[in-house]
């Protein structure tokens, strides 16, 4: 029988893979996709809680997270393309105008 622990463990694993990607990789696109993965892991836990507490609020919240992710994807990718146009790079480490 699949229990709440199975789903929550999977959600945690996916979330931390995403965290690792954000911390370790320097490619902006990959960092971006890692954030999407983390959002999805959170969605999985929302839906799991909805299933095991018998209330559908989790589904609605998951929908909101997806709408947020869509807005984030649109704006984020537009910024990414602009950065590439102006600086010809997609590496996070090269973007240090404000620091130096």
């Amino acid at each position: 029988m699949v229990t709440i622990h199975h789903y929550m463990t999977l959600s945690a694993i996916l979330f931390f893979i995403g965290v690792f990607g954000v911390l370790y990789r320097r490619n902006l696109i990959v960092i971006f996709m890692s954030i999407e993965l983390m959002l999805n892991a959170v969605n999985l836990s929302f839906v799991t809680f909805a299933r095991y507490t018998q209330s559908m609020d989790g589904h609605v919240v998951a929908f909101f997270v997806m709408a947020l992710a869509a807005a984030e994807a649109a704006v984020g990718l537009a910024i990414l393309v602009m950065i590439f146009r102006n600086r010809a790079t997609v590496q996070a480490d090269d973007l240090r105008l404000m620091r130096d």
Binding site: E36, L44, V47, H59, F63, M66, A70, A73, A74, L77
Partner: peptide, 30 residues
């Protein structure tokens, strides 16, 4: 997995929005 959790609405949105729109946008950018 969403479908297994009886979340049909989230299942459809996941495919429609995430796999079908957001990821296509990312691949398009790449």
């Amino acid at each position: 997995l969403f479908a297994m959790l009886h979340a049909e609405f989230v299942f459809i949105l996941q495919i429609l929005l995430y796999a079908g729109a957001i990821m296509v946008l990312i691949i398009f950018t790449i």
